[in-house]
Design a protein around this nucleic acid. Structure first.
Lengths: 337, 337
DNA sequence: TTGTAGGCGTTATCAA
DNA sequence: TTGATAACGCCTACAA
């Protein structure tokens, strides 16, 4: 494989081309005063040696690495992997390289920070929806700009981008109520994005005079949805409309409901969140909230663009609207009974 | 957000602690002869200034960045995102940081190489199963060790890790034959991993005296599977056993089959590849090939460990076995008719 | 347009 | 155990 420990340097190229080292540097610079003749000599020598300019010294000189870290996890969720792909493409297009670190829970971002700081990353993007106030403070102490994704953090050093969870909860409650739901349930984890959703959900149900929803905690996974369904559907009376924390949970819920002989949406309506591709599979066709991913990534990239600009007004807290997408899992015109 | 352009350096810490710069360097080194008293002084000063050692100068001195690039794409496929997560965790545990680049097709890895080379990455992992001989040669010219994942490349500068595709095709043909298949089909793209699978599939069908399989090209997506089903199931006679290039394709195929009123596996058996979590959902329960991901990642990490070791014997070509997992989508005891 | 020289923040060597 | 000094590879004045 011919792994060599040392790559040719601009000095090597300069010697071979019979010019100074600065001439080599200028030959590879975008806008630099250099004669085309000298440049040609340099390029020829560079090609012979297989020279590739190193970005490392520039980091030392400019204090900018053009490296952005992204901390994420739970990539079993297609929403997360789609977000990651969008960030990768967007950042590459902006001239950044992306360092990916796996974060299992909120506090392990702190464990990764020393490494990220040592590479002098220009910013850290926290794509996992888990960053509480305390770890946000610890992470902010590194004085590296942080952008929290899908997590409403209120810390003076952390920007955040998220969707309007309360509105989402309200929209879903209205949707269920309009389709004749009587006994609603909410399946979700203990994190703030879902508690906000539950708050909005609960508020509108109360406004419509419907019963207080049963709230069941659940992991944000297919299996979590199955477990919640087993518990909820064994109850008497069972709920007839269930708002799940995400689409994977909704799919698990539906699969168990069907195995129990229930029809969706006739016997029980089920809705999710994130609008992952699987939500649109004809086998499930799940009502969800749409395309928040693309606009959230765009908003995050806008924030990153500002970092390093002198005029930057940071941190920023961005809250984006959500839009309900109705599919078969809640599509019924007549309330049962 | 208090973005400062310059972080405190070891010289700043040294001045504050009243010691030499080398003392600071030693205080943060794992094994270095330094008195605990000096180290305490250094740590105190470092904490006051918020000093974090930089890894950048070390890269210049040692010619090792502890950066590994991973080129991937198609993360809509849960197999890819799982692989990526496994690599991220494995490399982080090995003390590497991972640079993620998005690659749309084989040749765009070449487009990303100058950037990766400029960051002096220690190796490039090509996780997308697309790297033909030609672009492998172009990429190898950078003299950075390459590990091709899930792609059997024969290039003297590229290591590769893949599964035994021919064996997979043979196993599936035997499986179908044992369950009474008469008219088999193969749905897959034009890449070498699938042509090998098809070759093995075809060979065993011939050995068993079954008809030559119909082969239908398809994108490696849910939609691709749907399209293939629409074409294949409209034919007369329609196939009664279909080996799909991956699980997403198989799921799309099943969804269309059911919408056409066909039963799986009674009317048509369907199998996939990769054993993604979705394959085990009770809604589909797809026969697939299992856990190749974990062992492939492990094998790739083993290769990366060798890179930089003096005793390294590279490149290496690793071929791993596959194991068929039977699920409901092919589980039938009696041949129909 | 070209070359010379200084410096970025570390590690490694050597002397004290 | 310490401190001084020389790299590492590039960019950027500054001088020619």
């Amino acid at each position: 494989m011919n792994v060599q420990k040392k790559f040719p340097s601009s000095v090597d190229v300069a010697r071979r081309a019979g010019v100074s080292q600065s001439a080599v540097s200028r030959a590879f610079a975008e806008k630099a005063s250099i004669s085309s003749k000298t440049r040609a000599k340099v390029f020829a020598a560079a090609a012979e040696l297989g020279y590739r300019p190193s970005a490392i010294p520039r980091i030392m000189l400019t204090h900018r690495s053009h490296l952005v870290a992204i901390a994420t996890g739970g990539m079993y969720n297609p929403f997360q992997s789609r977000i990651l792909e969008l960030f990768t493409r967007g950042l590459n297009a902006m001239g950044y390289q992306l360092i990916l670190v796996h974060v299992e829970a909120g506090d392990s971002l702190e464990a990764a920070m020393p490494q990220l700081a040592s590479y002098r990353v220009d910013a850290v993007l926290v794509a996992r929806g888990v960053l509480d106030e305390q770890s946000a403070a610890a992470v902010a102490s590194y004085r590296i700009p942080i952008v929290a994704f899908h997590t409403p953090v209120s810390n003076p050093f952390v920007s955040s981008v998220c969707v309007d969870s309360i509105s989402a909860g309200r929209q879903m409650a209205a949707h269920f109520a309009a389709r004749g739901a009587r006994r609603c349930a909410f399946v979700g984890g203990p994190f703030r994005t879902t508690t906000d959703r539950l708050a909005g959900f609960r508020a509108v149900l109360a406004e419509r005079g419907l019963a207080e929803p049963i709230a069941v905690p659940s992991a944000f996974t297919y299996e979590g949805g199955r477990g919640a369904a087993q518990r909820l559907l064994a109850a008497t009376p069972a709920p007839d409309a269930v708002f799940c924390a995400n689409d994977l949970v909704a799919i698990g819920f539906i699969d168990v409901a069907r195995q129990l002989g229930l029809r969706v949406p006739e016997d029980v309506m089920v809705a999710g969140f994130d609008d992952i591709p699987e939500a649109n599979w004809s086998s499930h066709s799940i009502t969800s909230f749409s395309e928040s991913g693309v606009s959230m990534v765009e908003a995050s990239l806008d924030i990153l663009k500002q970092i390093g600009e002198a005029t930057a007004q940071l941190p920023v807290q961005v809250v984006l609207p959500v839009r309900l997408i109705e599919r078969n899992s809640t599509r019924r015109n007549l309330p049962p009974l």
